[in-house]
Nucleic acid binder design. Structure first.
Lengths: 194, 194
DNA sequence: GTCTATAAGGAGATAGAC
DNA sequence: GTCTATCTCCTTATAGAC
């Protein structure tokens, strides 16, 4: 018989992660107390420790999950022309940055709040993401469809530029997502000499 | 008679601000205690309060000072061609980002740790800086030397791209400052269709 | 200007009842 | 799985001696 309701743990766990993600992104990891997180979910603080062994693990799980999602969802196809792959990358990066702004912001800003061991792990995942873009730039230079002065620096620069959308984009503002994406496409394509 | 030595306050004050800037940038405002700052300078914690009324004011003073320095030092000349002004901007922005990486990083990341009143004040200074770049893009379009899809978005995108240099640049690394600046110039000029 | 001492409160995490 | 209560430690900020 199919279950129609999950256990409380299946509901409460995600609620705790959602609250932690939102609060960490808004105020910073160090500024948020376990009591604030529990209050947001409607629990007493002790109950949180049935879901995470400690606050540090909660942060590391959020960042790991986000980076793994990014790597799993990125629809890159090395068989395509490099410009099409670059277009796919920037559409994907902007879409995730607008759909999950807190997770994107956290993954780029709270590496410093991780223990050295956790930081190494998450930084390696982020490095894979950066390497993916660098591979596209390498392919573009090989085909002659792009002119890239320095592939590593350019990859970092493009990611910084696109991720910056989380700093100013507001839902319902002057530009909708499609416009924003089209403008960033012009900027990115111009930067790589396409 | 000219004084050859400043009072202790004239030395200790800047030392406290230096330590606070470094620690806030590395660990985040909320994660740094007044005790850590005082220990870094070789004082007991109580002595800090002779120099700042509280921790919040210390952060606001750092950000205000940095933004005022930026606005005062930026050597823009509206009489020059827009591309020369854009080149001046990016050289200035990269130079300050590499010379004072902690201040630049703080000013972009710790706005959220300010009280609403302080945040409004610092955000207004930052806005003036962004407006300065936007004015250059406007001039470039008017002269026909640039093609900019959306001036406001482009200004934000370029600043995010250039500021990102603080995330990966390491003194003594693969690229020196002049190389880094030259590469970013290619990217920026390409992005605005120059 | 700097110290020591302290006030008053919040932090992360745990124990044990239910 | 959640609660209440508690332990231990650290926090910002102040008071008053020197």
């Amino acid at each position: 018989m199919a279950r129609t309701h999950g256990s409380k743990a299946e509901i409460t766990g995600p609620l705790i992660r959602d609250a932690a993600r939102r609060l960490f992104a808004r105020h910073g990891y160090a500024a948020v107390s376990m009591r604030q997180i529990s209050a947001e979910v409607g629990l007493q603080v002790g109950a949180l420790y049935a879901y995470t062994p400690d606050k540090q693990t909660l942060l590391a799980d959020l960042l790991r999950g986000h980076m793994q999602d990014l790597l799993a969802e990125w629809p890159d196809d090395p068989g395509q022309p490099a410009l099409a792959r670059l277009d796919g990358f920037l559409r994907f990066h902007i879409a995730t940055s607008l759909e999950r702004p807190e997770a994107v912001f956290l993954a780029y800003m709270e590496l410093r709040s991780l223990t050295p061991e956790n930081r190494r792990e998450i930084a390696a995942l982020r490095r894979r993401y950066e390497d993916g873009l660098e591979a596209i730039l390498t392919a573009g230079e090989a085909e002659g469809s792009m002119t890239v002065p320095d592939r590593r620096l350019t990859a970092m620069a493009l990611i910084a530029m696109l991720t910056g959308v989380t700093n100013w984009y507001r839902e319902g503002g002057r530009l909708d997502r499609d416009h924003v994406t089209a403008i960033y496409r012009d900027l990115v394509f111009g930067a790589v000499g396409a």
